[in-house]
Nucleic acid binder design. Structure first.
Lengths: 99, 99
DNA sequence: CCATTATTTCGATAAATCTAGAAATATAGA
DNA sequence: TCTATATTTCTAGATTTATCGAAATAATGG
């Protein structure tokens, strides 16, 4: 995980609306959720939601998979875990003792 | 950690420049670093850096402490850890089994 | 092919953010 | 107090983002 990808990931989580969408998907588990269900649970209008889902998907935080005419959205747990790990990954590597 | 604070925290990490500044402080450990040192290590101009540090500090990601005429910046490890934990905290709580 | 459902793209406006030079502020020491 | 050092505030332009209605696209069933 390079700093560019990480920044993009955090930026995608850095909006209240989008973080709520992401949390909804994280809670939903491996089955994922269709766009319409997310719309119902969050109250976000379709066009706005599509915008946010695109943002999340560009950042690799979710995966979209078409099934017939609905689109299933799933949290990308691997990537999310990698981002969580990234935050403190290099903790204290430059720290000097004493002082 | 509520969703508002979390979104603010992730937004603060969601810029490449700012994430680099934060990483620099995470690496620096508990001793922290003066603004000038961060400036040297990152190459970011003073006024821009001050802006980013304020952003990070508003989001509670770093703590600033004046010592004489220099300002020591330290990563707020507690808060960073809480943010890392937040990401997958509620994983799968809504998941239904089978099918 | 037509109607229906699901989702996205278009378009436009408002708001927030990024950047950095110049000026201002704060502190310490001579 | 005068000077040097450290950092911030001011200011402003360029870029990005957020929002959402209306129109367009995609897929299904009759």
């Amino acid at each position: 995980m390079d700093v560019v990808a990480a920044a993009q990931g955090f930026a995608a989580m850095g909006s209240e609306s989008r973080l709520e969408v992401l949390q909804t998907l994280v809670r939903a588990g491996d089955n994922g959720l269709p766009v319409g269900d997310i719309q119902l649970r969050t109250g976000i209008p379709g066009s706005t939601l599509a915008h946010h889902l695109k943002f999340l998907s560009s950042a690799d935080l979710i995966v979209q998979d078409r099934q017939g005419r609905t689109i299933i959205n799933q949290a990308n747990y691997r990537h999310l875990q990698a981002l969580a790990a990234f935050i403190l990954e290099e903790c204290c590597t430059d720290q000097e003792m004493g002082a």
